[in-house]
Amino acid sequence: MHLQLTVNGNPREVDGAWEGESLLYVLRERLGLPGSKNACEQGECGSCSVYLDGVLVCSCLVLAAQAAGRDVVTVEGLAENGELHPIQKDFVEAGAVQCGFCTPGLIVATHELLARNPRPTDPEIREALAGNLCRCTGYEKILDAVRAAAVRNSRA
């Protein structure tokens, strides 16, 4: 199958993809973008979260063909000019990253939350990140990182 889509602002083409492949597989295995993680392939962990036409989705649950002609933004697309995105810095500074496997999905989900709601309350943060699992941190430092990002927003 031949596939054309926009990834992180660039038009990309994929040849020879199998019709049953997920968008996650295409990103990681065909386009060399391993930022989106493959942990469960069943929508449970959120580590494959990306934007599809501006909407937060689990890329493991999107059939690659469904993304044809669409606009995809992955965690790799958030950093600018080789500089970490401020949310990424907040995660590093808060100690919200241990093994790091959940981090890309949480960064994309946090990015989406703050774009919608720049100063979320704690319950709103918990609700927005309910689909992202972390086996390491116990979530407290992740919440700290998101709170820090929100504070940064309220100063800006």
Partner: peptide
Amino acid sequence: VGSPQIRNR
């Protein structure tokens, strides 16, 4: 239902 990601799809 599920999570934001699931409800979006």
